[in-house]
Structure formats: structure tokens, C-alpha cells
Design a binder for these strands. Structure first.
Length: 710
DNA sequence: GGTGTCTCCGTTTTT
DNA sequence: CGGAGACACC
């Protein structure tokens, strides 16, 4: 396997070997034939357990899709007997979409020539969504005290339950702001404040929390996997094939769930890249590949050919690979890697704004441009400048349901209505101070306990009945707004009213579409659609907000994993940021940088700041920059200003003395972000001004944002 | 309630 | 290294 030739001329020989596939299924063969030898071997491999090391950009998803097609069309394994597990909904969706283009004979109807049925792919999805599917359709969740229509708890919900328990039981909990982290630590066997002098009620709290969740029939994300894992022990669910994507991100809990899914006749096929382990702080582990190989006695192979990046970019990437990793490119050298020194991130943002405008003019869509940085906080400068320069951008992560308060309120109203045990949502909907009846908290509490009444609460409690006599998704779509009398509750006089209303109607439409697409009963469908919103979180909202608009992508290095762009700009590669201070020997930081580099298809530019505005950054460049081979770097140092303010002032005074002129009156300027300031110095390229509260900033004259007042 | 001392933590975030 | 939180002591 490992000796498989890279040279393409050998493909013909390989194809002869696979000729039988054409006889069985021409349609699949046409897709299969386009793969390289490594990919073909992985697709047709039928070892009991197999580990595929897929290097960056090596066509991992294509292999996964073809694997599913091969099993379905050639080996006649029904889709319903396959589990395809991913870490993001996006990845799961892509695989499903691509599989759906083919006709795979179904379980129920083996000779079916129609396209594959989506419902056969219930176990294609994220670990969490597959766990949810099993818990509400296959496993006896009642054994754990739940009912099949449990709902999924989001962060806010979890926090509210915690507050409730602490309040009600008068518990003594320290470090409450870090409660979630502490519970997480407790679950994973390492307590955050293990050596507290005086312990608190954390153990008792953890127990009561679990009890309360069962009582309310809600599960958080971890509970989904945990419950599934427990129930699988005594209830055999053994697929014929388990296919796992991004295997390097698997945590212990998920590994246990997989263990319990594996039966005597189960095949496991895991695909991942050990060079892209960047989430170990979230539970994924560096030894996961070793564990897998040992536990299942797995065979192993590599996909070495990178189709994505130029030879130059791969040359830089290789410098960050550990051990004997192969990474073979097929593209030409392309543009050199550009390393730029900027005064600070503001200057860089101005520079990038111009650069991006130019690229756009030359025909590059904004979508092909990404700016990557280490911390979320680094995005704001780019946001400010791009807004002003009218460059459309999208910050990944930032937008979710909570950013549209009215929609979030409505979402909780629906959740309260489908699960009347869910008191935290009921309370919230009734006592919110903007939307709804805006009851005082104690009054809302009384209503929730049945000791008082309220019009909206009656609708919440009557919702199930209403659904049962209405029946159709169309009725829901047309009447739900009036059923809850939303015009009354959504502040019709507020400025945001029409937008709020719009979002809610859109969301109602989404729910209705979901129910129709999945051919579900109304009540069940709404419940499922709402859980889907929790599981899909941001994606649902993002779709509603930016329907495939062309925009520059701003994101952290972490968030960039799995994506690719023609132009990639990595910003702020300073000592203390990349890698973070105190983590100079941390391999994970190196892998993170590797992930960033390998997002670029054609052009990669890395910057650092001579006067960084992030407090933890030092003024010198990241040690990683010197790891990139010199001969592929084009370093263009922007003129840097004197580092110390005092030096700069002396310089100015000296200059003035030389000129022999009087000290001129300070020129007053206005800057859109820093406000009023005074010119301190000026030369042929740059201009420096001092702002109260911000200190001295210098700007390139080419795109100077300053307004001169006198 | 004010003050001094000690300890922990910093950043990344999907589901 | 600096801030937040907990705690002891007065």
C-alpha cells in the first residue's frame, strides 16, 4: 500500500484492475475513474478497520463520497446500514448532497432506480445529530428517565437551569463564572479548582443538575453522546459500515460511542490528518490514531497528493510537518510567499482594503479572499475599516440566534410551547423585558407554576392541541403568527419592528419547509425543526442573513480548518500571538499555523506588526516565519516608524531645529476611529498624529483616513 | 468593609 | 505579568 506509485502513467494498470466495477455499475465507474491510485485503493478497501491519513487538500471528501457510493452501488450495502460521522453539519451536508446525486438501491426496494432517499441517510451526520436520531428513534431512552420527545439544551438554557438549582437548594458554588468549565472538568476527571482550601457544593450540584435535566426532559450536547453511549451497551445497534470524517477531532466520549456501535460484522473506516490536530483543548487527543490502530488492529494508508496549493505554498507548509509526513503537490511554483511588516493592525487593515479592492477589480471575487488571525479580538479593526471602505465581509462565528433578540425570543416561545416542562424557556418568554407580556419575574414564576394566568402562557400550554387540530405545515406557516398574537408582543412601535417581523416570518417559513421536506406530522416536525436549529446553530442563521453573498471572509485560524481560498492573508504573526506567549514549544501552535498556510491555493501573505496593538504581542516577528525556506519568500518591509514615542519626539524636534523654523502650530486632524488629534510628524510616505487615549498612530499617505481641520 | 495574600488563568469554539 | 476571585484577618 505504502509503495503505491505516485506517477500518473501507472493509472492505466490500476484501471484494468478495477474493470469489474464498470460491469457492475457504469454510473459509479465514471466517477471512480477520475480518482488517483491512492484514492481508488482507499475507496475499494474492505479491511475490517482502516485508517486513512489524508494530508491537506488531498481530496478527502471525494474519497468519502466515493466510498459510500462504492459500498452502496457496487457492494450493495444499503445506505441505512452505514453510519457516516462528521464533526460539522457543513461536512455532513456536503457528503449527503453529493451522494444524493446518485441512485443507490434502497433497503426497502433493492431494484429501485430512483435517486437515493434522504431518509435512508438518518445516520449520516454529526456525532450529535446521529446520537439524537438514535435516542429518539432507536434506543429505549426511557431507561434513563427521558421520553422520546426530549429536547436539546442550548447554552443559555443550561445556564438558567444551573441558576435555578443553585438558588432553589441554596448551594454554595464558588467561581460561578467558570461553572461550565468546572463541570466539564469534573466530567473529564480533572477538577479545575482541585486544591481549593474550602470546597463548595460542586459535586452535589453536578448530581442535582443531572436530575433536573431528566425531570425537564432536556439534554445538553454532551448528554446526547453520553446517553447514546450508555444505551448502546445493552441495545445492539451495529451498522455494517462506520465511516468517520476528521477523525483527528474525536474525543474520548465519541470514541466510546463508536466502540459501542461496533459489532462482529462492522467495518470501520476512519479518515483524518494528524497534522491538523488543533482542538486538543476541547477534548481531541494526539494519540487518537495510535489508540484506533491498536484497538481495532487497523490497516493504514496515506493520501499524499495535494491538489489545492502551489508548490511554493506547500514548500512553506512542509516546514511545519512533524516526522516523515509526505505531502506531494501537482501544481507549479506560483507566486512567492509574501511576508509584510506593518506598523500595526490598523495600518494593515488600510493596506488590505486597498489590496482587496484591487484584486476585486482584477476579477477575483471577494469569496476567494480570507483574512486569518489568532484571536477573535483581532477582527474588529478589519471590520471597522472594511465597513468604511465598503468592502463586504463576513466574520465567521459571530452571528448566532442571540444576535437577533426578537427572533431568539420567538425561538424560545416555540421551544416552551412544544415542551411545557421546559420552565426556563417559559419563564424567559413571559418575563423578557422587551418582547412578550413583560411580566415581573415573580409573576412569571407564578404563571409557570399554574398559580396565575396569562394570555400568552395559555397559548403556550394550548399549542399542542392547536397543532393536533391544524395538522398541516401550511396552516402553521399562515396562522402561527396570529395564533400567538405576535404583533401585540413584538413592540410594533420599535425601530427594529419590521426587521424583527421579517426574521420571524422567515424562520417560520424555515420550520414549515423543514416539516414538508421531511414529511413529518406538524407537532413532531416543529419539535424536530427546533432541535435542528439548536444542533445547526449558526448555520441556520447565517443562511437567513447572508444568502450566498460575495464577501471577504474574516476568521480565526481555528475556524479556517477545512476551507480553501485563492488568496489568504495571515495577520499578526508576531511573537506572543503565533504562537501565543509561553507556548513556543507547543506542537499544536505549529499545527495551527500549518492549517492557516495550507488554506491558500494561489497566494499567501503573512504579516507581523512592528507596533502591535494586542497587549500580549511582542514587536518581533513570529519564530515560525524563519522556518519558511528563504528562497520562496518575498519579504517587503513597510517603512517602520521609530518604536518609542520619546525617540520619535526627539527626532521631530531635531528635524525642526535643522530647518531652523519656529515650532509650528500643531495641525489638527480628525480620524474616524480615534477622533481628534494633532499631527506630530510627516515625511514623504507617512504621516503621524497623536490622539488622546490612543497615543501616536502613523498612516500611509496613499490612503490616509485623516481629515484636516485647519 | 477594607486590605493583604494567595491561586489560577490567559487563547482557540463545534455541537 | 496582571487581573479576578476567594479568603483571612482586622
Amino acid at each position: 500500500m505504502k509503495e503505491m506509485p505516485v506517477h500518473l502513467e501507472n493509472l492505466a494498470v490500476g484501471n484494468l484492475k478495477y474493470k469489474y466495477i464498470e460491469d457492475i455499475c457504469k454510473e459509479f465507474y465514471d466517477s471512480f475513474i477520475k480518482l488517483n491510485d491512492y484514492q481508488k485503493a482507499a475507496v475499494t478497501n474492505e479491511d475490517k478497520a482502516f485508517l486513512l491519513n489524508a494530508s491537506v487538500g488531498s481530496g478527502k471528501t471525494t474519497v468519502l463520497v466515493n466510498k459510500v457510493l462504492y459500498l452502496g452501488m457496487v457492494k450493495k450495502v444499503p445506505l441505512s446500514k452505514m453510519f457516516v460521522l462528521t464533526f460539522t453539519n457543513k461536512a455532513a451536508d456536503e457528503i449527503k448532497q453529493r451522494v444524493l446525486r446518485f441512485a443507490i438501491p434502497s433497503d426497502k426496494n433493492p431494484s429501485d432506480k430512483n435517486p437515493s432517499d434522504k431518509s435512508e441517510m438518518a445516520a449520516f451526520g454529526t456525532f450529535h445529530s446521529v446520537a439524537r436520531y438514535l435516542l429518539s428513534n432507536v434506543l429505549p431512552v426511557e431507561d434513563l428517565g427521558y421520553t422520546k420527545d426530549f429536547s436539546i439544551l442550548d447554552e443559555d438554557g443550561a445556564r438558567e437551569i444551573s441558576d435555578y438549582i443553585i438558588d432553589k437548594n441554596g448551594l454554595n458554588i464558588k467561581y460561578r463564572k467558570k461553572l461550565e468549565k468546572r463541570i466539564y472538568g469534573l466530567k473529564h476527571g480533572r477538577e479545575l479548582y482541585g486544591n481549593m482550601k474550602y470546597s463548595d457544593d460542586i459535586d452535589n450540584f453536578a448530581y442535582l443538575l443531572q436530575v433536573e435535566k431528566v425531570k425537564r426532559n432536556v439534554m445538553d450536547f454532551d448528554d446526547l453522546i453520553e446517553c447514546c453511549k450508555i444505551l448502546l451497551r445493552n441495545n445492539a445497534v451495529h451498522p455494517e459500515w462506520i465511516i468517520i470524517d476528521e477523525f483527528q477531532d474525536t474525543d474520548s466520549l465519541q470514541l466510546e460511542m463508536i466502540d459501542n456501535l461496533v459489532g462482529d460484522n462492522t467495518h470501520i473506516f476512519a479518515v483524518g490528518d494528524p497534522n491538523q490536530i488543533i482542538y486538543s483543548w476541547r477534548g481531541s487527543r494526539e494519540d487518537i490514531f495510535e489508540i484506533f490502530k491498536e484497538r481495532y488492529d487497523a490497516k493504514e494508508a496515506t493520501l499524499p497528493i495535494n491538489y489545492r496549493s502551489t508548490a511554493t505554498i506547500l514548500g512553506a507548509a512542509r516546514a511545519f510537518l512533524s516526522g516523515q509526513s509526505h505531502l506531494v503537490g501537482i501544481r507549479g511554483m506560483g507566486h512567492a510567499i509574501v511576508i509584510k511588516k506593518h506598523y500595526n493592525s490598523f495600518n494593515e487593515a488600510l493596506y488590505l482594503a486597498e489590496k482587496i479592492k484591487k484584486l476585486k477589480k482584477e476579477g477575483t471575487p471577494y469569496n476567494e479572499i480570507a483574512i486569518l488571525y489568532r484571536k477573535q479580538s483581532h477582527s474588529s479593526v478589519f471590520e471597522d475599516v472594511f465597513t468604511r471602505e465598503k468592502i463586504p465581509y463576513e466574520v465567521s462565528v459571530k452571528k448566532d440566534l442571540k444576535d437577533i433578540p426578537a427572533l431568539y425570543w420567538f425561538f424560545r416561545l416555540i421551544r416552551a410551547s412544544i415542551n411545557n416542562n421546559d420552565t426556563s424557556n417559559i419563564l424567559h418568554v413571559l418575563s423578557d423585558d422587551k418582547y412578550g407580556p413583560c411580566l415581573k419575574y415573580p409573576v412569571a414564576r407564578q404563571v409557570a407554576e399554574g398559580k396565575a394566568r396569562d394570555g400568552l402562557a395559555d397559548k403556550i400550554y394550548g399549542f399542542r392541541k392547536w397543532c393536533e387540530c391544524k395538522k398541516s405545515a401550511d396552516d402553521f406557516e399562515n396562522e402561527i403568527y396570529d395564533y400567538f398574537d405576535l404583533d401585540n408582543y413584538l413592540l410594533p412601535t420599535s425601530i427594529s419592528y419590521s426587521k424583527d417581523r421579517d426574521f420571524i416570518l422567515k424562520y417560520i417559513k424555515e420550520i414549515s419547509d423543514y416539516i414538508k421536506a421531511n414529511k413529518m406530522d406538524l407537532f413532531d416536525g416543529i419539535k424536530n425543526a427546533v432541535d435542528y436549529t439548536v444542533l445547526y446553530g449558526k448555520q441556520v442563521i447565517n443562511q437567513m442573513i447572508y444568502k450566498d453573498s460575495d464577501s471577504v471572509k474574516l476568521m480565526t485560524l481555528h475556524a479556517s480548518k477545512g476551507l480553501e481560498f485563492k488568496y489568504v492573508f495571515i495577520s499578526g504573526a508576531n511573537m506572543g500571538i503565533i504562537p501565543l506567549s509561553g507556548r513556543y514549544d507547543d506542537e499544536e501552535e505549529k499545527r495551527l499555523f500549518f492549517v492557516g498556510i495550507t488554506r491558500a491555493k494561489d497566494y499567501l501573505e503573512i504579516s507581523y506588526h512592528s507596533n502591535p496593538d494586542d497587549g500580549s504581542a511582542l514587536a518581533n516577528p513570529s519564530p515560525y516565519l524563519s522556518m519558511i525556506p528563504d528562497d520562496i519568500i518575498e519579504s517587503e518591509e513597510l517603512k517602520s516608524r521609530a518604536m518609542k514615542l520619546s525617540d520619535l519626539k526627539r527626532e521631530i524636534r531635531d528635524n525642526m531645529a535643522k530647518k531652523g523654523g519656529k515650532v509650528q502650530e500643531k495641525k489638527k486632524v480628525i480620524h474616524p476611529k480615534y477622533g481628534e488629534g494633532y499631527i506630530v510628524s510627516e515625511d514623504k510616505d507617512t504621516i503621524s498624529a497623536e490622539f488622546e487615549g490612543y497615543g501616536e498612530k502613523s498612516f500611509s499617505k496613499l490612503f490616509c483616513p485623516l481629515k484636516f481641520i485647519n
